[in-house]
Structure formats: structure tokens, C-alpha cells
Amino acid sequence: MSDLSPMRVVTALIAIAALIALPFLASGATLDIANQILLATIGAIALMLLTGFAGQISLGHAGLLAAGAFTAGILAQEIAAPFWIGIPAAALTGALLGVIFGLPSLRLRGIYLAVSTLALHFLVVYVGGEYETRRGFSTGILIDPPVVFGFEFWDPVAWYPVLLFVAVIVWLLARNLLRSRTGRAWAAIHDTEPVAAALGINVARTKLWAFVISSAITAMAGALFAYYRGFVSIEAFSLFVTIQYVAMIIIGGMGSLLGAVLGAAFVTVLPHAIEAASALLPSSGGLAGSIFAMNYAAFGLIMIAFLVFEPGGLVGILRRIGGKRGTR
């Protein structure tokens, strides 16, 4: 991680330069995609901490994003709370839900844990849906754009630096966390729980922490998503979203923060790439209706390909290429 080979420094500098230059060069639509990638990155890092590092399976990620988005939405709607209340509130809700999502993990492992988090997903979505119908927002909740010192954040250009900043902060937080005691404890329970317990690690607390931290970040990402879109609807948090996030960490590469970023970028760009590709096809008229179907199919296929042929994900591929060059 910390070796500063010239190759790495140059790559990092180019990446930073590109990230800074982007808003000046890119169109609004491209910048919108970049923002989506940044939002996905935050969520993917959160899931990577939980699954990739602490080894806890969760199929409730969309539920947690929804919880964050709805917290922000409901607060904005009911008490006109500004974003600097909405976002911490969302993180708090996430942390609370993290305890609830994490409790089954104290007793359950493997598929049973996957199933309990899946069930919680349906529960959160149900509560969100109930709120929408009860309050008569059957299509969703509108949120006014956040205002800071009189400046309204409503277009992708304004949002880009904010999201980039948050994503970098979350990345740094995650990196330091992994180097801390907590991070080492996660690695220990990921490998073998009994051994971790024998080493004096409090397995229950370690697991709950993983869920709490991951869920808090996820819910915050959900709230940011709500403010960015200016709109919250339960429709946006289907099970497919969970699957997308799980796909991000698989495609990126389990147990790697860089993997979470790469996976987030890949999964976010894929539908746009497919749309662009199908627009080039001559018979695009007939295909237009089935774009989402092609997304699903391509998505499933790519996930399977990674699971079967490249379990190390994109990071695994990068490492192999790097290894061949002899850099490490």
C-alpha cells in the first residue's frame, strides 16, 4: 500500500489532475455521471468495509441507502430541516439501523445472515412506501436544493467538488480505520472467528461496529443522493440496487478500497455505455424499449464472468498486469 514507486506517484498525480480538471472540461451530462460514480463510491466503500474486510454478508444495502434518503427527505418535508441537519441525521439513522442489521450476525453466519439482511431490506422499503402513501406523496418526496451562504447547489458542476470532497474523506477514513485496531480485528474475524475470539478480540462488538460504521456511511450516501436528485422515491431503492452494490465490490475486487472505487465506476458507467452502444446500432428503434433488459443481461453476465473467472476483480487484473511488468 505505502510503497511510493515512481510509477505509482505518476499514476496518482495524473488521476488527481484529471479529477480537478474534469468540471472545466466535461459537459453537464458527463459530470452527472461523474457525480453518480462518486456517490456510488461512497456506498461501495461502506459495503467493502463490511463484506470485503469484516467478512459479513449483507443484502440490505439498498434498504440502508433508502433509510438515509428518507431520513433526509422526511426531515426536509416535515420540519424543513436544512441539509446540515439532514445528513448527520441520516448517518445517525444508519448507525441505529446498523445495530439492528448487525444483531443477527451475532448468531447467524453465511446464508442466514444474507437472508436476515434481505428481510430487513423489505422492511425498510415497506416503511418508506407506507410513509409515501400515508402522506400522499405517492410518486415521491421533493427536496429543495441545499443552500450554503446563499449559494444554491442544484447543478452537477456545483455538486462535483462537494461529492469529490466527501468521497475522498470517506476513503481516507476507511483507510485509517483499516489500519487501526478495529480494522485488524475485522481482518481477524473475517478469517476465523474462533481464533479471533481466542486472541481476545470481542467478536460481537467487532461485528456490530462493522455494521454500524458501514451503515452510517451508507445512509449518509443515501441522503447525499436524495439532495443531489432533489427527490426521494422508494422506487429508486429496489433489490436491484443492492445487487448493483454487491456487484461493485465483486467486480472491483474484494478486500480492496481501490476495488470499491473501480467497481463503483464500472457499474455506474456500464448502463450508459450500453445505451451509447445500442444507439449506434441500426435497429435502435426496436431495441430502445429493451435497453433496461440489456442492462440486466449484461450486468448478470459480467457478474458471473467475474465470479467464475476473475474472483480477484479489476484489482486482481491490475495486480497481475503489474506483476508481469515486474513492478511488484
Partner: peptide
């Protein structure tokens, strides 16, 4: 996850 991925693939193919 493989079964989930298969499910997504099948959904797409069906449509």
C-alpha cells in the same frame, strides 16, 4: 452471488 447474478441475467434475457 452467482445465483443472484444468474437471476439478473435471466430477467434481462426474458424481456
Amino acid at each position: 452471488l452467482t445465483t443472484i447474478a444468474l437471476g439478473i441475467l435471466l430477467r434481462g434475457l426474458i424481456v
